[in-house]
Write a protein that binds this DNA or RNA. Structure first.
Lengths: 221, 221
DNA sequence: CCTGAACCTGAGCGCCCGCTTAGATCCCCC
DNA sequence: GGGGGATCTAAGCGGGCGCTCAGGTTCAGG
């Protein structure tokens, strides 16, 4: 939808398009072998439901239809599972934002695009997003430091769009870093409250939030 | 600040004023006996740092300067500690919003007041707010149901202000429930990212967020 | 000075945790 | 058809968990 002309040379554009379009997503296709992927998906579900510390390795292995010991053939520790999940999830989130930030259109269009697709991902993939966004503290120091680096890139991407809008005179933002923080906070928290059985679809929430964010930055005055 | 004329007959107004004024808060004064309060404060700190499931009863008792067994004289289970913390915290949050919602002034002033004081509480009392807002799932079904009831009242309070503003023609809000959700989500998530050693004070974040929320509801067009 | 209630501790019970090890099974290539 | 690496399981180890209990300490009231 964004890369209409350069779709052939866009490596990431294709893989992104097929997932932001569909409701459910399988971003774990890159994980091999098959048994490792099943364990990882089981871990995402368990972590999202009960939290990292309340989840047992026996539960994860059980969901994947394996014995507890099988887990340790593919992953060194329980924490490595969380680390892998977190890294893949953050890479995906960053990819979504980059695609929107570097698309065509003015700052208003790009910000609306970024927010709506970012929110869609948090709502539609709530299970994954919840683990990715809220289990950061359960990682050890090294892994956490790596993930925090990715988060800084996420922040820079959004701040870049807002700065563009201010520079072009499209936005009215007194505090750019603070507003960036608030916009990201708003989007991320969707993973906490969004309910699949609730009244809103991910698309609707994405549209609502894009509108609210444009108001926050004073677009279209 | 809000009840200037009816301060004498306002039961809740006094206890609220002295806490929203000061930076640090001790809303645990009502908990007796003294040993129980010390255990409860220790539990708040431990839960906020490591999460409910990663906190051991030995850690809580140790922080309070007691043996693990002492905990069970004052609380039946570890979960009862979280329940008590959550109930007191939610009552406090609701009290803050009610005070702002029922104050004087038009909808714009009351919404700004509600958001800034609510955000100040989440930032200044981040330790408590974090436990209150993010450890809900660790409660059992009965306790969780009770807390969810309090959250609905919180939601109703904010929705009421926004509806007043729309009815008076001060706000421009296409989706009142959705915007209410977003406003509360924005405020609550402060407890996740706010850093005491960071560049912003709770007052500054409160002022920034009040401005952003007024933009979201289209006030002052 | 004694009593009994309130409070707290040392020791530890039973359980389940993350993780390991020895060996069975599968499947591909020769 | 048989050797060998990859994959999985049954069994269990050491340890820390939530929680309990018998007994010590404190202190107000008689």
């Amino acid at each position: 939808m964004v890369f209409t002309l350069s779709v052939e040379k866009g490596r990431t554009a294709m893989s992104t398009a097929e997932e932001t379009a569909g409701g459910e997503m399988q971003p774990w296709a890159e994980v091999t072998p098959d048994a490792a992927r099943r364990l990882l998906v089981a871990a995402v579900e368990a972590f999202a439901e009960r939290g990292y510390h309340a989840t047992t390795t026996r539960d994860i292995a059980g969901r994947a239809g394996m014995s507890p010991a099988a887990l340790y053939i593919h992953f060194k520790t329980k924490e490595e599972l969380l680390h892998r999940i977190s890294r893949i999830g953050h890479a995906k989130a960053l990819d979504i934002l980059r695609t929107a930030a570097r698309g065509e259109g003015d700052a208003t269009e790009r910000l609306a695009d970024a927010v709506s697709s970012f929110v869609r991902w948090h709502a539609g993939g709530r299970t994954t997003a919840r683990v990715v966004q809220y289990e950061l503290d359960s990682l050890g120091p090294d892994a956490r430091a790596e993930i925090i680096g990715l988060r800084r890139q996420v922040d820079a991407e959004v701040r870049g769009i807002i700065q563009d809008g201010v520079a072009a005179g499209d936005f009215d933002v007194p505090d750019v870093p603070g507003t960036t923080l608030a916009v990201l906070s708003l989007c991320i928290d969707v993973a906490r409250w969004f309910n699949v059985d609730g009244p809103r679809t991910p698309d609707e929430v994405g549209a609502l939030y894009a509108d609210l964010v444009l108001r926050m930055v004073g677009a279209g005055k």
